[in-house]
Amino acid sequence: MQRVAYYTGCLAALSAKELNTSTKALAPKLGLELVELESVTCCGAGDIHEAEPDYYLHLNARILAYAEETGCETLMTICNVCTLNLRQANWQLKNDEELRARVNQNLETVGVPPYSGNVDVRHLLWLIAEGDGYERLKEAAHKGLKGLRIAPFYGCQILRPSKILGFEDPDRPWSLEAIIQACGGEPIDYPAKIKCCGFPIIQAREEVALSELIQPIEQAQEAGADAMVTPCPLCHLSLDAWQLKLRKATGKDFQMPILHLSQLIGVAAGLEESELKFKRHVVSVDPVTSKLEV
C-alpha cells in the first residue's frame, strides 16, 4: 500500500460528492492508502491567485505544510484546478528559498507547521497511468467495460502550463487513453479533448463559456462515444450540468453521460451504486450502465 495525503478539494465534498465516495472506495483496490487532511482549505481555484496572489501562496503553503506533516511524500489531488494551484505554489516555494523562509515565518506566526518543500503534488490520474499503479489498475479493473466507447476529456489545468504540470506532452496526452484501455474500454479520439470546458467563466461569461463547452461534447458525440470521462470535477460540472443549458441554447439534443475518472475505473472494478452515485448526475448514465448491466 502506498500512503498518500488526500486532498479532496471543494467540489468533491460539495456538489460532486460522488467523486469523493468513488475515489475512497477505489483507492484500496489501487493500492492507495488515503490519509485525510482535516485542517486544509480551498486552494483558491485560480480565483484567489488572480485576486490576492500573496494570500493564495500562503493558503496553498498551509495545505502543503499539513500534507508534509502526515509524513507522506505525495499529496494526491482529484481535480485539475487543485493540481495546478498546489503545484504552482509548490514550484515557487521549492525554487525560492527566500520566499519560502518568508512564507514559513508567516505560517509559524499563525500556528501552522513550516513547510520544508518535500511534498510532491500528484493527481490520481498520474499515480495509476504508469508503473506499479498501472499494473494494479489492470488487476483491479477485472469486470472490464465491454468495449464501451469512451471519449477522454483532459481539460486544461492538468496539461498546461507544462512547465508546472509536466506529466505528459500537453498536445498529445496518453494517460486517460491508457486507463480506458486497461479498463477494457475503447478510447475515442477527437480534437477538443485537450481544450477548455469553459467552467472558470461559466458564471461571469456564460455565453462565451457555452461556446467553448459545445466543442468537446459535440465532437465526442459525432465520434460515437458512449460516454466521456474527465479527471476534473469542474469539467464534470460543466460537461454534465451545463449540458442542459447547451441543449436549450442550441436546440440540439445532447445526451452525453459524463463520468469522473474514479467512476469509470470504479465501474470496471465492480464498485456499488452506493459508491458510484450515478443518480447524482444531471445527464443520465443509464445508457452506459445498461450496456454494462451493472
Binding site: P53, D54, N106
Partner: peptide, 25 residues
C-alpha cells in the same frame, strides 16, 4: 475546515506585508 481561523489570520498578516496586487505573483 478545522482551524480555519489560521487562514483568516494568514490573510490579515500578508495584507500588512506589502506584497499585494500583482507583486504577489
Amino acid at each position: 475546515a478545522a482551524d480555519v481561523k489560521e487562514a483568516r489570520a494568514l490573510r490579515e498578516l500578508v495584507g500588512e506585508q506589502g506584497r499585494d496586487g500583482a507583486l504577489g505573483i
